[in-house]
Amino acid sequence: MRNQLAEARRERRPLGAFTCYTLDTAAGVLDAAESAGAPVVLLVSDAALRAPAGPRLLTALVAMAQRAAVPAWVQLDHCPDLERIRQALDLGAGGVMADGSRLDDAANLEFTREAVALATPYGAAVEAELGRIEGDEDIDVAAAAGAFTDPAAAEDFVRRTGVDCLAVAIGNVHGSYRHEPRLDWQRLADIADRLPVAVSLHGTSGLPADQLRRAHELGAVKFNVNTELRRAHVGELRRALDEAPASTDVLALTERLRATAAETTGRFLRP
């Protein structure tokens, strides 16, 4: 994943990252990636890893990624805990996001450096966040933009931590946008020009396609998608149960959920 992030930045090639709470979703994401011939990242939220079956989920996703017909990796997303980062690395994650964005700048810097030191022996990629991307990655809530990323501070942060990717705050949020998205395009361009590593944009589910294209043109290469997949998954589940409330055909249901995930993912992988 480290090499993929470097290549994505160098070649200005987008890399989609999709949160998978179930194996049905992961199968659909990989179906879409294989159909598009695109590399892909399967994201595991920190809340999902903390759940009782979290380690099993991550282990299963690693196995699926390894068997995919396209380059694929598993990344632990938005984790503020070094022990869970270590756990994810032990289970085979190819990348981790060390999220110290709730800390002050000095503490975030130190936390991220420790995460890089942990990941280095595994050859795993480390993503960090500077600024504050508001909202909840696991629950669809309306949010307003948080503190924006300063380009000069971002350059210094990357140099001092050695991360492979930086998630930036330019007006993007997790979940739903409380107001019409207004991204700071000049800030994104300045950050991408300064940084020697990949720039990641979170909260892309709520952004129109033209804004995603512009973000890519200005230098963002990793795009995280969560809310759109969850909405599609739950919506399809409700439709299936409404159509056949007495059915116990689990295989048919899981195939519908897999197809829905593939269709949703495919919209983000198309040029």
Rank of each mutant, 00 (worst) to 15 (best):
L207Q: 05
A125K: 00
G95I: 09
G16A: 04
D184S: 06
E263W: 03
L89H: 11
G266M: 08
P52R: 14
A48T: 11
L212C: 10
A6K: 02
G146Q: 11
V41C: 07
L103D: 10
W73I: 00
E83F: 05
D210F: 01
A93V: 08
R2H: 08
G100P: 09
V96T: 09
P121R: 11
V158G: 09
D140F: 12
K222S: 01
Y21M: 01
L269K: 01
G206Q: 05
E110S: 06
T149F: 08
E7V: 05
G16R: 03
A128T: 13
G135H: 10
L23S: 10
I191G: 01
T59P: 00
I170S: 08
A36T: 11
V44I: 14
V250H: 11
V197G: 10
A69C: 07
P121E: 13
K222V: 00
L195R: 12
R113L: 13
L49K: 12
P151N: 04
F111D: 09
M1L: 12
L201K: 02
G16Y: 04
E137H: 04
R213S: 12
Q211R: 13
R187C: 10
V29W: 14
L251D: 15
E255Q: 14
G171K: 05
R231L: 14
N3W: 05
A246W: 09
V62S: 03
G100Q: 09
V173T: 07
F148C: 01
G266H: 09
Y177P: 13
T254H: 14
V234C: 07
S205C: 00
A153C: 06
L58G: 08
E217N: 04
V70E: 06
T19R: 01
T25N: 02
A115C: 05
F157C: 14
A69S: 15
G162I: 14
R270W: 01
S205A: 09
E83M: 11
Q75G: 03
H202R: 10
R50K: 08
S247T: 15
T204N: 07
T265M: 04
R213M: 04
D164A: 04
R239L: 14
S200W: 02
L237M: 13
A98S: 07
T264D: 02
L257F: 03
